[in-house]
Every structure is written in C-alpha cells, then in structure tokens.
Simulated assay, not measured.
Amino acid sequence: MKLIPDLKQQIEVIIGTTLDEYEITIQEWTQSVANLVGLHGNSETSGDEGEIQGIPNQSISRSTLSDVISLNTGERIFFKVRMNEKEETVVCWGCAARSITVETRRLIELLIRTNMGLPDEIQPVVYENDREQYLTELGLWLKEQIEQPIKQESESVPDRFVVAAGLNAEKILFLLQGDTPDAHRLRSKELNKLLESYFGEEIVLIPLGEQEWIFMGDKEIVTEEAEEDTTEAKKDSLNAFCLGLYELVASEWAGVFHLSASLPCIPAQQLVSVTALLKESVHLGRAFHVTQHIHLPWDLHLERLVASIPDEQLIRFIQETGKDTLIFNDSETLATLETFFSLDCNVSETAKRLFIHRNTLVYRLDKIKQEIGYDVRHFESAVLVQFLLLMYKVTKKH
C-alpha cells in the first residue's frame, strides 16, 4: 500500500487545514475501531461523536475492523493511509473534527481508497495548473541528474523546460531546506507567495523534495545593492540578501531552515551543477557550522577540502600535529576560535563581537597556545589550527 508522495499536501490545499501524521500499531488501530463499534452497537453512525466511516452500512465483524478508513473520536478525525503488516504499524493522518464537513471527510476517504488501489506506476498526480506540473517535472528531472553520478552534471536542461521557466536568462539560484515539524510544514504554494512578495516578481520555484526547493531570482534585483560590479561586491550583496530572506522565512514558519545561494549563472546550462554545489554547501555548513543557517559556497572552501580527505589521513594528521584536540570540546574555546578566524584574526574586533574585554581575549588565546602549542595570532599557526578544528569536527562525528 503506497500513496502518491504529495497526496497529503494536495488534500491539505483542498481542505484548507493541516493533516498531522501519526504512526501507531495495527493493534492500537483495530482496538480503537472495536471500541467505537461497541459504543454504537456494532453499527455505523453518521455525524455523531464516535463515528466510523469507510465501511458498508451494516453490522461490523472483527474481520472487517481493518477495512475502516476513518475514525471520528469526537475531537479529532483520523484517516488510515498506510499499513505495514511486516512491522505491524499503521500510518494515520489526523485533523480537528470541526475543521472538515462530512462531505469533505468522504472525499478524503475516496482519495485514499483510490490511491491505495492503484499500482504505483499508474498513480495519478493532480496539478492545479500547467505551471505547477512542469515545475514539478523539472524538479524530478533535476533530482535524477544529481542522484545519478554516471550522468554529467553539466548536462543542459531539456528544451521543454527552458522556455516555460525562463532558464535562458541570467539568474541567481537559491536552495532552501526545511527541518520543520509536520504540523508546521512549509508548503510550496505558501512559500511561493512569500518569495514573490520578497523579490517583487514572479518566482520560479522548483520542488526537489517534501521540504527542499530550488528557486531563482533576477540578478539585478538580488545584487542591486552591490557598490561595484565585481565578484566580491556581489558576494557581499548576496550575503545581506540571504540574511533578510532567511529572517523572513523563519518569522513565518516554525522549525529550522537552511539556505544557500549562487553567483549569477545561466540555468539552462548550469542548473544541475549549481544545484549540486548548493546542496553540497548546505551539507558542509550543517556538518561544520551547526549554529549557522546560511551556507554560501564561497565561504566553505576549507570545509570542502577537509571533507574530501579520507578519515584515516585526517586522524593521522590530528595525531601527528594536533597534540591535545580535546580543547575543542570546550564551548568557550570553540566560540573564541571560530569568531577569531571569521574576523580575519583581528583581536579588537573579536573582543567586540564576543562582548569581552580585549585583555580577556588575549588571555584566552594565550591559554590556547599553552594547550596545543600554536599561537593563532601568527598566520601559519592560525591556518594550522583552523585546519585542525575542521578536521576535528569531521572525525568526531564518526
């Protein structure tokens, strides 16, 4: 029994409310059905508390308990959407009973039954319009290119998508990943409206997964604040733009989001390679900088290099060079070093950022020198300690 991946999202759009997802045992489901059957004398009720629907209007036997699709406990309605007999579990969707009508409930049951009964390869997907369809299909194609390393990442986008999505124009690509609770999940339709209000133009929003999207912004809109027409100025402008965009999304939805962005590119030729780069940047950022949520490719060169080194060599390097890397376990030391490196080893600026006296920072740096034998105020030592810190973050996860 397998439902089309976005059926839940489509139903939520139709009914205008969120369906929470639960996983319970088959025994718990059948016991709930049996309890409600007993409450109503083994007969189906209609519109009352403790209502059972999804089975014929006749006496209910034990053998038919598993056929029940929905239960109304009075406060909430639960829909059985998937049953794993091997693991003896049932996946249910639930919503407040007052949030949907009897007719809507029957429509949901029909949609679930219809998709349960169809083979996976012919399950239908219903789109609101042609634009939603081709963007979804583009997302599936893009995901396939990235997940199959046999194909070249530079492969051009098929012509059927290029004109419809305007991929021949120079754009800036953004990747957004969400780690949100199911009840507060961000939906593509709502995200699209939010992004268009921020960008001030129509946005090409390509879904890559249930909580992952690629979207594009016009180069002039995103980098209009750049003081000069240089790569560094565009990076600075993008940093500020991403910060505002992240704060907007985070203020609208609960949960954690991760954002990355590219320099201007032509999506028709570079969509696959740039998307792969942004996904890698988010992965590296989440691994090396767990407290940050904006991960830009040009800020992760060292992290990318360290991640490419085999674990055995990382451990050997740490053992030969790092002396006692346990100092990195100390949160104060970790924050001091990361801030110091991010501010180009500037003692005064680091002290200001950490809200401590300059002498306090000097004391901490002297203590680090005593612990590991490297003075990070000197260039060569700073480079070495930064590598050690990144290597330590990778190896401690294994």
Rank of each mutant, 00 (worst) to 15 (best):
S308P: 11
S308N: 07
I309V: 11
P310M: 05
D311E: 10
D311C: 06
E312P: 10
E312D: 09
Q313S: 12
Q313K: 08
Q313D: 13
Q313F: 13
L314P: 00
L314A: 02
L314F: 02
I315D: 15
R316M: 12
R316G: 09
F317L: 03
F317I: 10
F317T: 08
I318W: 01
I318C: 08
I318V: 04
I318F: 04
Q319W: 12
T321V: 08
T321L: 09
T321Y: 01
G322I: 00
D324I: 00
T325F: 04
L326H: 13
L326T: 10
L326P: 11
I327W: 00
F328P: 00
N329A: 10
D330H: 07
S331K: 12
S331G: 11
S331R: 11
S331P: 08
E332M: 14
E332V: 14
E332Q: 10
T333M: 09
L334Q: 11
L334F: 14
L334E: 15
T336Y: 08
T336D: 02
T336A: 06
E338M: 10
E338N: 11
E338C: 12
E338F: 05
T339N: 06
F340L: 02
F341S: 03
F341H: 04
F341I: 03
S342M: 03
D344L: 09
D344N: 15
D344E: 11
D344Q: 14
C345Y: 05
V347M: 01
V347P: 04
V347Y: 03
S348R: 12
T350V: 07
T350D: 00
T350C: 01
A351P: 02
A351D: 00
K352S: 08
K352H: 09
K352R: 11
K352L: 10
R353N: 11
F355P: 03
I356H: 02
I356K: 06
I356D: 01
I356P: 05
H357G: 10
H357K: 10
R358Y: 14
R358N: 05
N359G: 07
N359A: 10
T360C: 06
T360S: 08
T360E: 09
L361Y: 04
V362T: 14
V362E: 15
V362S: 10
Y363W: 14
Y363F: 11
R364N: 03
R364M: 05
R364E: 03
R364K: 07
R364A: 01
L365W: 13
D366S: 14
K367W: 14
I368S: 07
I368N: 05
I368W: 05
I368V: 12
K369I: 10
Q370L: 14
Q370S: 15
I372M: 00
I372R: 04
G373E: 04
Y374R: 15
Y374P: 09
D375Y: 10
D375V: 04
R377T: 08
R377V: 02
R377F: 01
